[in-house]
Amino acid sequence: MDHLEILEGEAIHILREVAGQFRNPALMFSGGKDSTVLIHLMVKAFYPSPPPFPVLHIDTGHNFPEALTFRDDLARQYGLKLIVKEVEHTISKRGLQDATGKFPSRNALQSHTLMDAIKELGLDACIGGGRRDEEKARAKERNFSVRDASGAWKPYNQRPELWDIYNGRIQQGGNVRVFPISNWSELDVWRYIQREKIGLPSLYFSHERECIRHNGRLVAVSEYILIDGSDVLETKNVRYRTVGDMTCTAAVESNAFTVEEVIAEIENTNISERGQTRMDDQLSEAAMEDRKLKGYF
């Protein structure tokens, strides 16, 4: 077996453990490449039976329109049950302070919507596309990450996880975050997309876009960010390396129109995936750890 077959087998094994161990799991979908790969793996893991889990999208309201169109097409194509929960709704219901500033990212607010959704839908497992090589706090995650009713990650007393035996038992109100593609790198994901011919939102390939430059990063002009007189609007050929909230995801200049060309660019880049594109990770040296402690993936 080559490395992609091994990684695929590991992910399918984990997804089947989720189906066997939990009453009410959901697969978290963001519109990005990692969760798109997860959906493909789920369909493959249970074929010829239909996929047993619904797909949950926490909608920040700051999405790329291309990601939303892609999401709806994908759900139709695979016959997925799609559940959408809106951060906007959580903000008004809970009377939360909306994000402010030049780039008002709802990334941290998402955790509230997620926790409300887990409670409302009675979810006992949430499957996510987090990968350990993305970020240093994620590098410490188990494949089955047990969370209590508050959703908080307890990195200093994680459950031992031996071999490929997964203990998904949880207390009332708790849930498990499951990471089937923990061991995949960015290139593994792209090579798998290439091998399995998995479709992606058009954002992932070179296109023209009007951007501003902020701290060296290219941010798309949209109604969600504040453009002022000091900003210089430029039209560039770009693609996205990660897809999150429009307010905190930056584009990279690119002329890669195909999966093969994207792979070639990634092989030659000297900057990490999140380092190049995620403004939310740059807030402090422990930004991801802090979000995870509050229930984030």
Binding site: H3, R132, K140, P155, Y156, S185, A286, E289
Partner: peptide, 26 residues
């Protein structure tokens, strides 16, 4: 050192997974 406490105390508390590739192996 992935966790704040690990960086502050200069110790490893839990396993961190790291990845690299050479020509024929991940």
């Amino acid at each position: 050192d992935g966790l704040r406490a690990e960086r502050q105390q200069g110790i490893t508390i839990d396993v961190a997974y790291k990845y690299f590739t050479t020509a024929d192996r991940k």
